[in-house]
Design a protein around this nucleic acid. Structure first.
Lengths: 130, 130, 130, 130
DNA sequence: GTGGTCTAGACCACT
DNA sequence: GTGGTCTAGACCACT
């Protein structure tokens, strides 16, 4: 799985790395138990400082998404060990998304159809949950 | 409409102001053509720097959400003059939201039910679109 | 409140800072809502790198102990906004402590008396809970 | 007695081994004078490097918990030969535990009740002290 | 040969 | 004038 970093945007690099690994885990591009590149390897691949990758990995570890280990590097956790379920942050972000759509005049049905489409795509990969 | 600023959180204040005005426009709490408080007024109400409110208003203006003029201050635009429809940013944020839900083991149907519920709530207010 | 850093020990500096601020909050040496020194100020006082203090503060923020804010620097949160209650980590550390005492031949009553004494001391300060 | 190693956590493996043997000694799962597995044996069982087990055993030896000799391998010491009593480290760790509980708003009595419960459990095993 | 921590120095967004 | 992020370079504990 290849990560794409946008150095120009205003999303911090460590956040881009974290987000893309979460998406990889969701789509099945990274399987549970699979090895991730080491901090140094990924830093070299992306042309960023190891500390930046380290920060992304530390965040993923705190979220229960990956386990780190001096011998084997980083590894994607099983779903069971991850922080579970829909939380306030999910709701809050979903609400903002919906509000922006409505404020721009998008009909409810069009929005829900679009989200359903995106969800179908993501959930129909070689993914982890049915 | 009352804005609530969370000084402790990660979200910049100007962004919180912008987000809440968008939500107000979506829910109907602010009507098209309605006057918004002046930069100074809102800054005083919230206890923040006028520059911060100014930045939020400038962002909303760039998005076509509000119009500013010297005489009448800021005013919520009609839906027709706003940037319309679902854009890449919407998709990207929706995708990240869906990915995080799936990565945490949330079944697709549970996620969609939740989003539909939130959308129903928001769209059934005194809102602007059907 | 004065922090004491042990550069020789094997406890990371950022962890020492975090631990001592938690103890200060518990003893009442730092009151809820009280300002903490800025990252740079504390770094200068302790003779460590700002990044090290930053890491300690980021940890405290993630635990809900402090709020950070560009205008006012760091501030101790109210108890209500902190992660609450006794968790698995507390139990696990308590269990290890008890096990080591017993393995060293300390009678149960002596251990409990000692812990009660320490708790009395700490809870009888100008502290936050009764 | 079976040791469980958590490769994902923050605690170094050698420390986990040491901690669990101390807990085994405290609970009576390992009796005074009892043979421990050899370094190689335990390393093979746990799937870790023999150096890691060696480090744990060296630590336990330095603490007076075990005796090593070429003939009989490692053996749990009598209580009388162990470093005795509550030391500064115990106090310091207990204090940190208490401080974190109080900082999170746990009432003193709730904390002491919990610790007493844990101590009762541990001391009522086939243990070594009354 | 990995991740964890730390330093010194820098630029930027936000206030 | 704050915290947030990033770099380049380093040493260390652990494996």
């Amino acid at each position: 799985m290849r990560l794409e970093i946008d150095l120009a945007g205003d999303v911090p690099i460590y956040r881009q790395i974290r987000d893309q690994i979460v998406r990889g885990a969701a789509s099945g591009a990274i399987a549970p138990g699979e090895q991730l590149p080491t901090v140094r390897q990924l830093a070299a691949d992306l042309g960023v400082n190891p500390m930046t990758v380290n920060k992304a990995y530390a965040l993923l570890k705190a979220e229960g998404m990956i386990a780190m280990n001096r011998r084997r590097g980083a590894q994607l956790c099983d779903i069971t060990s991850r922080r579970s379920g829909l939380d306030d942050s999910s709701d809050s972000r979903a609400l903002q998304l919906i509000a922006e759509a409505r404020a721009k005049g998008v009909p409810k049905q069009e929005l829900l159809t679009r989200i359903t489409l995106l969800a179908d795509d993501l959930y129909n990969g070689e993914g982890e949950t049915k």
